[in-house]
Simulated assay, not measured.
Amino acid sequence: MQDMKRAPLLSLLLALGVSHADARVRLGDTLPAHPWVSAGREVVVVYTHDCGDLGGLWSAVLSSGLPVHAVNAEDISTPAPGGLKPWRGPEATAFARALRVGTYPTVLLVQSGRILNAWEGTFSGNLGPME
Rank of each mutant, 00 (worst) to 15 (best):
V46N: 06
S64E: 04
A33P: 12
D53P: 08
A118T: 13
W58A: 14
L14R: 14
R100H: 13
V107C: 02
S63R: 13
S38F: 00
L13M: 11
A80Y: 09
S19Y: 00
L9H: 05
S112R: 13
V68A: 01
T78S: 14
M1L: 12
G113A: 00
A60R: 14
P81Q: 08
C51I: 06
P35S: 04
R41V: 12
V107L: 09
L12R: 13
V61C: 13
A73E: 02
P8L: 04
I115A: 03
A96D: 00
W119C: 12
A21Q: 05
E74R: 13
C51W: 06
V44S: 01
R6T: 15
P81W: 02
L54Y: 03
P8Y: 07
L10G: 08
P32A: 06
Q2C: 08
G56P: 15
W87E: 05
V25W: 06
T93R: 01
W87N: 10
P67M: 02
A80C: 12
P67Q: 01
A15H: 09
Q111N: 15
A60V: 15
W87S: 12
A94F: 05
G65W: 04
Y47L: 01
V45P: 14
R24Q: 14
Y104L: 11
G102C: 08
P79Q: 02
D29K: 09
A60H: 09
L62W: 01
V110I: 06
W119E: 06
D22N: 12
G83R: 09
Y47N: 00
L84T: 09
E42K: 04
V37T: 15
L99D: 07
A118F: 05
A70H: 09
P32T: 08
S19A: 10
L10V: 11
R6W: 13
F95H: 09
L10S: 06
V101Q: 11
G82I: 07
L16Q: 08
